[in-house]
Design a protein around this nucleic acid. Structure first.
Lengths: 229, 229
DNA sequence: TCTTGTCGGATTGTTCAACAATCCGCTACC
DNA sequence: GGTAGCGGATTGTTGAACAATCCGACAAGA
């Protein structure tokens, strides 16, 4: 390497961050999180230490550590001497989630309306959902819907709120797992996301805030109606 | 027992919940949390598995589980293969906390102003702080101040927000540990909590919201001035 | 038939010892 | 001054063992 050190540095440009290494316990927690999110571990199901350890070919102690990592996420419930269970979200849990959503989703609406890039991203997400609905891919509709609402919250630029909302979204997914029919839930709300982004693009923050609140109230009612039937 | 079973049940009335038992890992996490909160484990300090295990006379595996329990609390930072360290909160962390506080503390002000019990509780907390300040007990002032702001947030009746705010308060306490002089920080803000509760009691929610925002902006500036000096 | 007591099996909670893996500081060499 | 190698400290993981707890099944007694 005959070049001077300064030249070597310049040639490399901005290097990407190294992928984050994870401990085995973190990896196990990730697997379990994913299994829960995809409905392969259903609400009420027990996460058996020995079984998971054998299946994933890790030590039981490692599985226990991963359970502790999941403890805060409201996805599992840890009962002393009984074990760890996938959490069941009932009507009260749903009410709590929507109360929180109504409090925090509107927080950054003014910033959203003033930021071209955010408006564009939200518009794209609604378009994605509409296309997915046309194709009958209701899981993708749900994903785009979640991304839309996540973007409303991350627009507030608060690590605390964003982190909390990630937990709430995971919890909400738990509630959705109980639904026999995703289409019945999502379809009526596509139009409303479109209305919402249109109001925001027009700068009508107050109307958008009202629309978002109405949306969340209606979504809660629709979900409760199914869950309590 | 000659009574009929129904009568036996009626006599017992509403039984209180049993005290929650804790696993050893949870207890260890609680001890560490408390040590951090009281400044006995300072920011940057490493939590050594072997040492804690020996001191608390538990197994190293149990200590590791407790570390995982602390992982979400933003009090410690877990670095793969390096260990677990009490988190250091710098100026950016302080800005993030106050941004979040400005977003969420005002959320339930209308409900606060409409609820006599909440107003009374807040007034009592300000009175407690004032008395503690007269007695020069600045730690108690800080505690009452924190309780005051916690009450603003719990008034929103959101388990998610309340839980998140507990984490934020613990994190804030970490930042306060760097302060040489608690009095200098708290004293100017006693008067402002009093102004705030008076506005709320008078039902002037808009003025209270403005006062709270000003308060938080000023508190952030005061803290940053000290931390960046 | 209902209630209470006992027992056994399954699972969790904890401990311990061992080893692998990683990091970091120190020293030697160029 | 920079690099390579080594050793020690610590973390990460494993697996076995045992204690503790829970729960279901069964038996006995009222």
């Amino acid at each position: 390497m005959p070049s001077a050190p300064a030249s070597v540095d310049a040639d490399l440009g901005a290097l990407p961050a190294l992928p984050r290494r994870a401990s085995t316990a973190e990896a196990v927690a990730g697997v379990l999180r994913s299994q829960i999110a995809h409905g392969r571990l259903l609400p009420g199901a027990q996460l058996r230490e020995e079984k998971i350890a054998a299946t994933l070919e890790v030590s039981r102690n490692t599985v226990r550590e991963s359970f502790r990592l999941l403890a805060h996420e409201r996805l599992v419930e840890h009962a002393l001497h009984k074990g760890v269970f996938v959490r069941t979200v009932g009507p009260d849990g749903i009410r709590e989630m929507y109360r929180t959503r109504r409090l925090i989703e509107p927080l950054a609406l003014r910033d959203v309306a003033d930021t071209k890039a955010t408006l564009t991203a939200l518009d794209d997400l609604v378009t994605t959902a509409e296309k997915a609905a046309d194709a009958g891919d209701w899981e993708a509709v749900g994903t785009a819907d979640i991304d839309f609402h996540r973007r409303l919250v991350t627009a507030a630029n608060s690590v605390h709120l964003s982190s909390m909302f990630e937990g709430l979204l995971a919890e909400l997914r738990l509630a959705f797992l109980r639904l026999p029919d995703r289409e019945a839930l999502h379809e009526p709300f596509l139009r409303r996301n479109r209305s919402l982004i249109d109001l925001l693009a027009a700068g009508d923050v107050e109307a958008a805030s009202g629309e978002l609140d109405d949306y969340l109230v209606a979504a809660e009612a629709a979900l409760l109606e199914i869950v309590t039937a």
